[in-house]
Design a binder for these strands. Structure first.
Lengths: 191, 191
DNA sequence: CGATTCTTTGAAAACAGTCAATCTGTGTGG
DNA sequence: CCACACAGATTGACTGTTTTCAAAGAATCG
């Protein structure tokens, strides 16, 4: 499964055979089965995590016990809880496996080493971070300004690959509307 | 007004007199008056911007012409549009001056130089970025899971300094509720 | 003081959430 | 292979919340 990451990397930066070997030697693959948890609320998240295959959801649970999905992660995306990783504090999030999944994990220290040894890698990570920050801003904008229908259509335009892999009620949770409302919106839009 | 930034820096990292001089020589102060625009939609944002004094709002305008506030920036905070700055693309945001304000500006290039010459500065910026990313995540969570009232009370707890400086209808815009609704919520909560 | 901006209020309409029931498809175990 | 369980999606009826529009008060600024 390391090949997936290798391909991902090669598409973004120039990496030598030696560098790839270094990277491979500092990471490890973990296989996960549906319904398993990669991270549970209260635990400290310790890794940088690249998804080679499969699908995950990261969610938080509120005081009323309701789950709210913060993000979906499929192959060629990153997952995890940056906040917990950087601060060392227990996570407020859960990461559940939605499909049998394989992830590539790097400890914080090993990831540091890779970034120091391969400047292009570091630049790539910074770029991903910047994009992900922009995506957050756009999501905030959507959340405060779109109607439920606009949220739905913008989601399926933006993430068609996710839309047809996860249950609708999870998309509802991601968008912040009830599953029933989303179902009705869908019916409307089917004209 | 550079003293404000100097104090901000000294509180966070150890900086020598020489380093401060370097920083000062690479930045410049800009004074802004209420109702002025620091950035307008369509323009490219070119600076890293620290607010020494005053208050700004960053907002986007949707297709229906409604404004939605993405962020408020007061003294000792950063402002600007990172996305436009890094990509070089026209901004989708506007930054309006709410109070007479003084900002400290650095071009991208000069900011780079500072970061290269002063590693602690770079680390500080990375830390701010990480925090700001976390704040975005928390705001997304609030937007998709809180009721209007919860959004309001969490806002005033989190940002009391802002709450009593900007008009209520702007807080409403920030939270994604109508000004009327916020006014009513407030009345309720006043018991 | 007069003008503008901000906040509040009321009434109606639109919208979204909840609860409960039904329907659909999938997959598992007997 | 069938029956059953289960997860997901849809629907209806109802409730509650939020928006909209319009107007009136309050506060602020020049």
């Amino acid at each position: 499964m390391f090949e997936v990451f290798q391909k991902y990397l090669s598409d973004k930066i120039a990496v030598s055979k030696e560098e790839l070997d270094l990277i491979q030697s500092l990471g490890f693959i973990k296989k996960l089965r549906k319904k398993q948890y990669l991270l549970q609320e209260g635990d400290v998240w310790k890794y940088h995590c690249f998804v080679c295959k499969g699908c995950l959801r990261t969610y938080r649970t509120d005081e009323k016990g309701q789950e709210h999905i913060m993000t979906f992660s499929i192959e060629n995306w990153w997952a995890g809880d940056r906040e917990s990783l950087l601060s060392g504090k227990p996570s407020v999030s859960n990461i559940e496996v939605l499909e049998n999944t394989e992830v590539l994990l790097f400890t914080k220290e090993n990831f540091e080493i890779i970034q120091q040894r391969i400047p292009a890698f570091k630049a790539m990570i910074e770029d991903i971070l910047a994009r992900s920050f922009n995506a957050s801003q756009n999501r905030i904008h959507a959340a405060i300004s779109y109607t439920a229908e606009e949220k739905y259509t913008s989601f399926i335009n933006k993430y068609p690959q996710i839309f047809n892999r996860v249950p609708l009620h999870m998309i509802a949770s991601y968008l912040g509307v009830s599953a029933e409302t989303l179902s009705r919106i869908r019916k409307q839009a089917a004209k």
